[in-house]
Structure formats: C-alpha cells, structure tokens
C-alpha cells in the first residue's frame, strides 16, 4: 500500500498541459523547408534518393502525402531540403500537401486546414471516431493509441476512439488498404451514420507510402471517398494528430 502511494506520488501529473502550443523535440523531422537555390547540381539526383518518390523537380517540391520523413533527401541535397521540427503538418485538401521551394511553415499553416463552421457546431465538443487499420504496420496505430495515453490525453477535448462504427461520427484509416481488407473497410464506413468524416492517417493511407506499387492493395475505396483530413507522417507524431483534429473541428 505504501509502495502504491509512493508510485502514485512519483508518477505525479504527466499530461502535456498545453497541447496546442507544445513543441516536439528538436531532432523530430517535421515540416520540410526547401531552398532550391542551395543545391546547384541536378535536382533529379535528390528526387532519385527518395524511397517513396515524393520529390518532384522543376520546380523542386515535396509531397507530404508521400513523404515518410526519413531524411534521405536532407543528406543528399546538402541541406537544400531541411526538415524542421514544426509538427502541425496536416491539411484538409490533398493538393495542399505539396510543399514548393520557399514555402514557409507560417504560409503553409495559414491555408492548410479549413475549419468549417458547420463542422465546428456539430463536432466541436464531441467527436467519436472509429479506427480501421487496412494493412497498417502498427506504427500509425500505436501513435493513434498514444493520443489517448496519460501524456497526450486527447479525451480531454471530447475526442475518443469508439468500439463500434455505429457509435462513431467518423472513420480514421491507416495502412495502404490491402485487398484482403478492402471489403471490411468499406463496410465499416457504410456502417457509420451520416454526416460522417473521413481522416486519412500516414503516408500509406494517403498515397500508398512504401507499398504504393504493391500488387496486393486495392485503393478503389480510398481513391473515391471524400477525405476530410490528411495527416501525413510515417507515423505522424501524436501532437500532429491531435492538433490536426482540433484545427479541423475549429477548437481554439
């Protein structure tokens, strides 16, 4: 009993008090800053090192929906591409995810997530989500689970993951959508009552990621359904996920 009290006291209060303004560690690879002029050799060489073909040339740009934030391009471009530790990288439109040379974090943030009044009034105080992993490697799944742990405590904002799609306001999808999960995923989506939102988490869901050219995926559903929020990363940091959802539902 005394040990239990000692343990509780030692544990204390570990929740991040201000999730909205908390910074992620310096080493984290978050929003990329591209300065095309810093690399004078052929940009195709930089594009070629990218494992997921996220980099395009003329002009140089990175698609965050494909990027797995591995840092290979940072090394290959002598710092012309630099990953900052800025972590709020989600967007409500896929085309916003393409970062051009010279784009600053502030510029990106200004238009990346559209907070609609209707969404705010409907889900601003309570948002229940059903998570479906469709070929996810358990990386994104672990970070989504971490959003609810004692450190991040997403539940304080009324955002929770629920066990049944019938209880949910939306679906959070991870993984490249394997053939064998395609049916279950679309069934889960159909089981959620309208109006419903769709959140795509991680490079695999958004673009196929490292599994983009696998013959074992079926991306028909994901390519046709309207996705409301794209949260890039491999996997995204819990603070990226939580802030994305809070921005989307218009929480101050």
């Amino acid at each position: 009993m005394l040990d239990l009290i000692k343990l509780r006291k030692r544990h204390g209060f570990q929740a991040i008090a201000d999730v909205r303004n908390a910074a992620v560690m310096e080493t984290h690879r978050g929003f990329p800053i591209i300065d095309e002029t810093k690399y004078t050799d052929d940009w195709q060489k930089v594009a070629d090192v990218c494992p997921t073909k996220a980099i395009t040339t003329h002009p140089a740009a990175i698609d965050l929906g494909k990027c797995i934030f591995c840092g290979e391009c940072e090394r290959a471009s002598n710092g012309a591409i630099r990953f900052s530790n800025d972590h709020k990288i989600a967007a409500s439109k896929k085309e916003h995810l393409v970062i051009a040379s010279g784009t600053t974090y502030a510029e990106y943030r200004a238009s990346a997530i559209e907070a609609r009044e209707k969404i705010h009034s409907m889900f601003g105080r309570s948002l229940k989500l059903r998570q479906v992993s469709a070929g996810g490697c358990n990386g994104c799944e672990m970070e989504l689970a971490a959003c609810g742990n004692v450190n991040f405590d997403m539940g304080r904002f009324g955002i929770d993951f629920v066990a049944s799609p019938r209880h949910a306001d939306g679906i959070v999808i991870t993984g490249p959508i394997t053939k064998n999960m395609a049916l279950a995923l679309s069934d889960a989506y159909k089981s959620i009552s309208e109006p419903k939102i769709v959140i795509a988490v991680g490079a695999c869901t958004i673009s196929g990621g490292v599994f983009a050219d696998s013959g074992e995926t079926n991306r028909e559903f994901i390519n046709t359904v309207k996705i409301d929020l794209f949260i890039p990363g491999c996997p995204p940091h819990p603070l990226t996920i939580i802030n994305a959802i809070l921005d989307f539902i218009g929480k101050k």
């Binding site: 494992p51 997921t52 070929g135 996810g136 358990n138 490292v210 599994f211 013959g215 074992e216 995926t217």
Partner: peptide, 29 residues
C-alpha cells in the same frame, strides 16, 4: 488481412537500397 506483398516488393525494387531499408522498417512498425 494485412498482406501487403512485402517479399515481392523487395525483389521488385532490388536496385533501390534506400527504399529497401525503409520497406524493412515497415514489415512490422
């Protein structure tokens, strides 16, 4: 249900070492 064809991807991309490293990181995240 999770079958992503990992082994085939290793063979298909055997000339892209950086890709293979990242793929191996995603066998089980």
């Amino acid at each position: 249900f999770q079958h992503r064809g990992v082994e085939a991807l290793f063979i298909k991309n055997n000339n892209r070492p950086a890709y293979l490293e990242k793929l191996s990181e995603s066998i089980a995240g």
